[in-house]
Design a protein around this nucleic acid. Structure first.
Lengths: 232, 232
DNA sequence: TCCTAACGACGATATGACCATAAGCCGCCC
DNA sequence: GGGCGGCTTATGGTCATATCGTCGTTAGGA
């Protein structure tokens, strides 16, 4: 079975026998090596690719390369869960609130001067973009991710990153990206950064709580109107 | 490309044209329908299967059935990320602490009588198992997941559930499941349940914080000894 | 009526062939 | 002599066909 091949390669990667950037043998070589047909090997590689463990390039010197995994695939899977399972967008938002509020203390504790400077720069750019009418949900998401990076904890960063994918998609699907009310959003971002700079946990919590509450209300309205649309 | 097929089917599922339990056409039928070969269709189905969107059964009346997605696959992916990416076990634990402490307020707000009763029953069973020498990490994980269920939020539940998978694996790999120090763990669990029953947020937080701190120290020791083992 | 054996539908795998792509090489032309 | 374009070749992508294992299903016999 091809599942066996998948597990075999996966464990090779886990055991550090294969490291990110390494190239696996060619499909034809793997066939021979494992004693199976090319179809089977290909199915295994496809699964690994879908899991984000390898990237496949075509052409000469192509093949399957071990990748340093990222949260992208995870985010995509999460998006599926949100859309297909008993998990609803409001629930995801609530989870997001737990995380983003929960990390504030750590953020304030660990944010470096560089972190704060970059956050300030980011809010400046966002407000400029807003004036040009180019402010987007992606920028807002980027801000929240950058805040999470201040924890200097890859797991937390990934968590926040993962949450934004599904939410963005949820909004995009509903095609309501236009009326952003970005003014209050960006100025809240700026206030939040200053609270971090001042190492004021209480204030930062307060601002972020308000900010997330507004966002969640907006998404709730979107959700409601979409449900309504379904009924019609 | 088979990616196209994947997206096509995926969007069919998203658009509710295909619902959980539905059976997709047979491979041979899909070939004809999409104008591609069986290999291509199979690769697409394998990817969907790996993503947890369909389950494939063999034999007569077999085929690809749309599944109601669960967090299982997501959890597996998360485990990969933990093991393969710059993300370390201590980082995951910190993230877990953020979530499990962050939800306490919600847990206390929403826990029903039934929730509390079941938690009490669970701790009783666990203490009995401990006396029989059968207490395991799985039981501890189950407790934390059950607590998360009290939020009645599928996203949060999945989050906590996902965290325990990688951590358990991390411990099992290091083969240190034996010396559990389960006595303090289970009694802390019991105290925690009573704090929930009493709707005492502060006390619950305090107990859980202490509990998680002890667990994280234990895992840190495991990590340290494993690193040491690697060097040798 | 009930049990069993043959049938058919369907996925799993194998084989061999051909196409598309892209990197590297070599020769041609300036 | 150097730069550039076409050729070579390794490699993934796709296809057609064939065979096998696994099941429901069903028909025939006890």
């Amino acid at each position: 079975m091809s599942e066996v091949i998948v597990e075999q390669i996966r464990s090779l990667i886990r055991a550090d026998k294969l490291r990110p950037g390494d190239r696996l043998p060619s499909e034809r070589a793997l066939c021979e090596q494992m004693g199976v047909s090319r179809v089977t090997v290909r199915e295994a590689l496809r699964v690994l690719e879908a899991a984000g463990l390898v990237a496949i390039r075509v052409g000469a010197r192509g093949g399957a390369f071990v990748t340093t995994p990222s949260s992208t695939k995870l985010s995509a899977n999460l998006a599926d869960l949100v859309n297909l399972s008993p998990m609803t967008a409001p629930e995801v938002i609530e989870a997001r609130q737990v995380v983003e509020l929960g990390i504030i203390e750590t953020v304030i504790e660990r944010a470096t001067e560089k972190d704060v400077d970059e956050l300030r720069e980011m809010t400046r750019e966002h407000q400029a973009a807003l004036k040009r009418g180019e402010y987007s949900m992606e920028m807002s998401a980027a801000f929240h991710v950058r805040v999470a990076q201040c924890t200097h904890n890859a797991a937390i960063e990934m968590l926040v990153h993962s949450f934004h994918g599904p939410l963005l998609m949820s909004l995009r699907e509903a095609q309501v990206a236009a009326p952003l009310m970005g003014h209050r959003g960006t100025s809240e971002h700026r206030e939040f950064v200053e609270a971090i700079a001042a190492r004021d946990v209480e204030k930062a919590r307060e601002i972020m709580a308000k900010h997330l509450r507004r966002t969640s209300q907006r998404i709730a309205r979107v959700q409601a109107s979409r449900e309504k649309g379904k009924e019609v």
